[in-house]
Design a protein around this nucleic acid. Structure first.
Lengths: 367, 367
DNA sequence: CAAGATCGAGAAACCGATTGCTGAGCCGTT
DNA sequence: AACGGCTCAGCAATCGGTTTCTCGATCTTG
């Protein structure tokens, strides 16, 4: 580039510095890509017209439209979705926040939601809170800000905090949470009903001493199950319930296998299938027969539940359906419709081979 | 407000209507939420100052900063990420496109990527192509436009198309794809090496007739495995290879169990663990002993591979690591660094109980 | 105490789209 | 021939931020 020789360059592109209060082109940070303005120039029309053509408005003369399309094609133009979002006030994105992506429950919700949203041209933003209560609220707010709506599975978040957040996060659909006193749309699994079905099943098999492997303490779904369990235990005759702290993962279940045996319980109700698998594996290693010596019931009916040895008795919940419905609710909310009634999904008891008749002559003293 | 009395108000805010080409406030579509302008007014400062405070610029007087923060707090202000993205030319979002979200392989990549990205304040957009080649390229372009970079697992997309797309999608990292002749950064699993390990293992056990359950035809990873298999079959003595069309899911594997038996092969190499589980289940139902009568080897070492009966021999690949590394590459690319070398992850053979010595006196005629 | 350096905050350009309003051009009426 | 109506493209405001530049005020320094 000729530096000091030509006045032309300065005339065309620069000019005397002190006359330029704020130099137009000089400050522009050129981002390479084709913009609507660039296309407009190339086609010899206004930006408005380009916008109309790109959005299929019928009020543009065919000849002009063709010219615009040609220019767009030539420049490899693609409208900026960010700019579009700003102008429209809508991102066409929804967020999903789950505590644990490795949990098949949430994987299926993710899929169901993703599919349903995609059908409407919406994309899905995913975030994992890692079972961290502190993280959940931050993440929720952040994710919501990047999208138009939010599906939130936050088992650890305190009611009060969630209640306070409700307004800021709308449109919002909760998974497995109902906040008393606030009309936050929520989809939930009726864990109590599932537990009742399992307990009834085990009772019918003659079990009189159940061990419950509790999930994370802060989890409301765990509290629901526990409450249902205590209710069941209180209602029937000769029924003992031993409660053990455990967790939500395979490893958690595996770790308590020995302790389970020590309780003398003849049947185990696990917080979920993962835990049930862990116990199953642990008992197997200890040489304890399932279901001959101890019966095991899980919860969730994740895909692999039918492929274990023995196949797992569990309470099945329509996970994909949950995701799909979550989208339906979101869509309704975004369309300005009222929240509507909360949905309670009823688990279905799937009896497989991990539960069987209670062994006779074996009390908890037998240990 | 005094309406007609003072010229002052008109001077300040309105003026004769016919002099105002487009009335300022009249057209504004108010979106409710607090904006930077609103906060600026409330705090009695300029928008620039609010922006500085919100971004922690140190060049704001403490007293002012406090006032701004108070105003922001009072108005419940949250900066619009969309507007921010537009101004900064960066969305702080990356996309992941996978063919099948129910595949544990991609689930783990998803987690690894999501974690690594989150650590840098980036969020993750997820899309599923449903094993649909036509969908893949559309989805990729679309997803890329909404984010700053893309991780693409597109096993069905033709080389040519991918090559053409490469530039538009950058920064881009491919998973399990290397396009000959183009320097597209890619992370891939060395399937051939995994297959070699499996074949060597089976051979050492005395197997001389292997059945390979092929994955989806269009899948390059399937082609890689097949090539390695043929190479191995050609190199050793007395080694027969039967190739069967199958698929990538449990159901696919389950469906071909009977056909597998019919081939007379003493060992099965499945396209992946899901298929292996399917065959395992199918053989179990047929009363065929594993590994006594037929050995089965999978590929991937998904979490449940160790919990089947018998536990599955398989080739393990560091899935989480793949996701993490994908982020590292993306980050490097976004920072303007050169693509760097492609990484090939070496599978590790995990020998469990689904493979055993070849049965004697049983040829393919024995059927 | 004056001159130069420093600091801090505001004005305004910009990011890249959408859209209400305006007016030119063309049509059909009376 | 004049006029009302209708199309259709452009102007310019707008979405809600960031950032450069400018300038007045304060602080240093000789």
């Amino acid at each position: 580039m000729s530096v000091g020789a030509d006045g032309l360059r300065r005339e065309e592109e620069s000019g005397p510095a002190h006359l330029r209060p704020a130099r137009r082109g000089g400050r522009r940070r050129d981002r390479g890509g084709a913009t609507i303005g660039r296309v407009a120039d190339a086609a010899g029309v206004s930006r408005a017209t380009v916008s109309r053509v790109m959005n299929g408005s019928p009020t543009v003369a065919p000849e002009l439209a063709a010219r615009v399309r040609a220019a767009a094609e030539a420049l490899n133009y693609e409208p900026s979705l960010v700019a579009r979002s700003l102008a429209l006030g809508r991102t066409s994105t929804v967020s999903l926040i789950v505590p644990d992506l490795s949990n098949p429950m949430f994987q299926d919700v993710l899929r169901g939601l993703s599919h349903a949203a995609a059908a409407r041209g919406y994309r899905l933003l995913v975030a994992e809170s890692n079972e961290n209560a502190g993280e959940e609220s931050i993440l929720a707010v952040e994710a919501r800000r990047r999208s138009d709506a939010l599906v939130l599975a936050a088992p650890r978040l305190p009611d009060a905090e969630l209640r306070a957040l409700g307004e800021r996060l709308a449109p919002l659909v909760l998974l497995n949470r109902e906040i008393p006193g606030v009309a936050l749309p929520s989809l939930s699994v009726d864990y109590a009903a599932g537990i009742r079905a399992i307990v009834t099943h085990l009772r019918a098999l003659g079990h009189r001493h159940l061990a419950y492997l509790a999930g994370p303490e802060a989890s409301t779904s765990n509290r629901d199950r526990l409450a249902a369990l205590h209710l069941a235990a209180g209602s029937g005759p000769r029924f003992e319930l031993t409660e053990m702290a455990c967790g939500a993962t395979f490893e958690d279940g595996h770790a308590v296998a020995r302790a389970v045996v020590a309780t003398g319980a003849s049947a185990v109700v696990a917080y979920n299938d993962m835990v049930a698998f862990g116990v199953l594996s642990g008992l197997h290693e200890l040489g304890i027969g399932v279901p001959d010596e101890i019966s095991i019931a899980g919860f969730d009916d994740i895909p692999f539940a039918r492929y274990t040895t023995p196949p797992l008795t569990t309470a099945s919940i329509p996970r994909n359906e949950l995701g799909r419905q979550a989208w339906d609710r979101l869509w309704a909310l975004m369309s300005g419709e009222p929240p509507g009634h909360n949905v309670h999904f009823q688990p279905r008891l799937i009896v497989r081979d991990s539960t069987g008749p209670a062994p006779t002559g074996r009390g908890k003293e037998a240990r």
